[in-house]
């Protein structure tokens, strides 16, 4: 089975983001970059399916040369091949298009990706790739099984108040939610092998007009200082806390 995993390099959520002077982008230098955490679930799922059914796992990213690091992280986890389409998409539509064109050429049986990237949180790319390739799609999957011989799969998604069970035919696109699996750590031999792996680089096909324009990035408003209940005896502080939670915060 040929499994393709779409991955993205994102800033570590623990790092503090600064916005460029022109308000169009974040300052990219000096950040810690990581493989998008939801993509880790997708990579892990691909590796588990490969262990079960055989085949190869290819990881694909769209981005600058720096994004090779995200590919190498996936290779270190155990992916077999890595492809980077080089380019800067203007929006999710362009990203979805470029990835769909690259994916088409690889003709996978299954495409996996994270349900969203934690940098811009659009949750659109997997969906767009499925649409551009005219494939069935299951988003936000928490469990997945496939039957390669029957060209079919089953997935579960969590919805408000319950679980949806979905049957679909292969090839298909599935986006991964937390809980799908427990991503493995890259192993040391994996890291050393990944370092020597050739990454295929090709120019991105951005042959579709962007659908939206980014007008401006602004940082969130600074958080208001918390309220500290001091100088009250324990029981009174408790009562005051409950009153504030109930009346002001309306949390209880």
């Amino acid at each position: 089975m040929q499994i393709l995993v779409l991955v993205k390099q994102v800033p570590d959520t623990a790092t503090r983001i600064k916005i460029d002077a022109d308000g169009k982008d974040i300052q990219r230098d000096g950040l810690t970059w990581v493989l998008n955490p939801y993509d880790e679930y997708a990579v892990e799922e691909a590796l588990l399916l490969k262990e079960l059914h055989g085949g190869t796992v290819t990881v694909l990213t769209l981005g600058p040369a720096k994004a090779d690091e995200a590919l190498r992280s996936a290779l270190a986890m155990g992916a077999d091949e890595a492809v980077r389409v080089d380019g800067q998409p203007a929006d999710a539509l362009q990203a979805g298009w470029a990835l769909a064109q690259a994916a088409k050429a690889l003709a996978p049986d299954l495409i996996l990706c994270g349900k969203q990237a934690v940098d811009d949180d659009q949750a659109e790319v997997g969906v767009l790739v499925a649409e551009f390739l005219n494939l069935p799609q299951v988003t936000v999957a928490v469990s997945l099984s496939v039957d390669p011989a029957a060209h079919s799969g089953q997935a579960k998604r969590e919805v408000e108040g319950g679980v949806q069970q979905i049957a679909f035919s292969l090839p298909a696109v599935v986006t991964a939610q937390k809980g799908l699996n427990e991503p493995r750590y890259p192993s040391l031999p994996g890291i050393m092998k990944a370092k020597r792996k050739e990454i295929t680089v090709q120019a991105a096909d951005l042959g579709i007009a962007a659908g939206v324009e980014l007008v401006r990035l602004t940082p969130p408003a600074p958080r208001k200082a918390g309220t500290l209940l001091k100088d009250l005896p324990g029981a009174d502080a408790g009562r005051e806390l409950i009153r504030l939670l109930h009346e002001d915060a309306k949390a209880i």
Binding site: S187, L188, M192
Partner: peptide, 19 residues
């Protein structure tokens, strides 16, 4: 052991990673 942190400087044929 799965991570590969025991004897990691040994060559792969002895289970190392050659780091």
């Amino acid at each position: 052991g799965e991570l590969g942190i025991f004897g990691p400087t040994l060559p792969p044929e002895y289970g190392g990673a050659g780091i």
